[in-house]
Measured scan of single mutants.
Amino acid sequence: TRVETATETAWISLVTALHLVLGLNAVLGLLLLRWQFPAHYRRLRHALW
């Protein structure tokens, strides 16, 4: 059971790390998009709101 718990903890930390990386990538991607295409982003925002 100790090995199972260790594997579980490893999986949880792995999934958490993946989520963090994906979240960071999403934020960075959005920031890059805003920086690269400000006009396009503004138009998109007007369409959404």
Rank of each mutant, 00 (worst) to 15 (best):
A10M: 00
Y41W: 15
L44A: 08
R34T: 01
R34P: 03
A26S: 07
V3Y: 07
W35Q: 14
T5C: 08
R43Y: 01
L14S: 02
L33H: 06
L32M: 11
G23L: 13
L31G: 07
L48V: 13
E8M: 05
R43K: 13
H46V: 09
L18F: 12
I12T: 05
A10P: 01
P38Y: 10
V21L: 14
L14H: 08
R43N: 02
H46G: 06
V27F: 11
A17H: 00
L28F: 12
A47G: 00
R45A: 06
L20A: 11
L32H: 01
A6N: 06
Q36K: 11
T16F: 04
A26L: 14
A39R: 14
P38K: 08
T5I: 06
A39P: 02
L20I: 13
A47M: 12
A39N: 14
G29R: 08
G23N: 02
H40P: 09
V15G: 01
S13A: 15
L22T: 08
T9H: 10
L33G: 05
R42D: 11
I12R: 07
N25D: 08
T9C: 10
Y41K: 03
T7K: 11
G29E: 02
L20F: 13
A39Y: 11
V27W: 02
S13W: 14
R2L: 14
L30E: 05
A10L: 08
A17C: 14
A10F: 07
R43V: 06
T16C: 11
F37H: 01
A26K: 01
G29H: 02
T9P: 15
T7F: 08
L48Q: 10
L14F: 05
G29P: 04
A17D: 07
A17L: 13
F37R: 06
T9S: 12
Q36P: 05
A6I: 04
T5N: 03
E4T: 12
L44G: 00
I12P: 01
L18V: 08
H46W: 07
N25H: 07
R42L: 10
W11C: 03
L24W: 07
R2Q: 14
H40V: 09
T1Q: 15
R45T: 09
A47F: 11
L22P: 09
L18D: 00
L24I: 12
E4M: 07
T16G: 05
E4P: 01
G23Y: 11
T5M: 04
W35I: 15
A6R: 11
L32Q: 06
R2N: 12
L14Y: 07
T5Y: 08
L31F: 09
P38I: 13
L30V: 11
W11R: 08
L14I: 08
T5L: 10
H19W: 15
L22D: 09
R2Y: 12
R43H: 10
T16A: 08
L30Q: 05
A39G: 13
L44W: 04
A6F: 02
S13R: 07
A26V: 14
Q36T: 14
T16S: 07
H19N: 13
P38H: 10
V15R: 01
V15P: 06
W11L: 06
L20Y: 08
P38V: 07
W11T: 03
T7R: 08
G29V: 15
T5K: 03
L24E: 02
H46N: 11
A47D: 00
V27I: 14
L44I: 13
E8C: 02
Q36D: 03
G29T: 15
R43W: 04
R45K: 14
L33R: 02
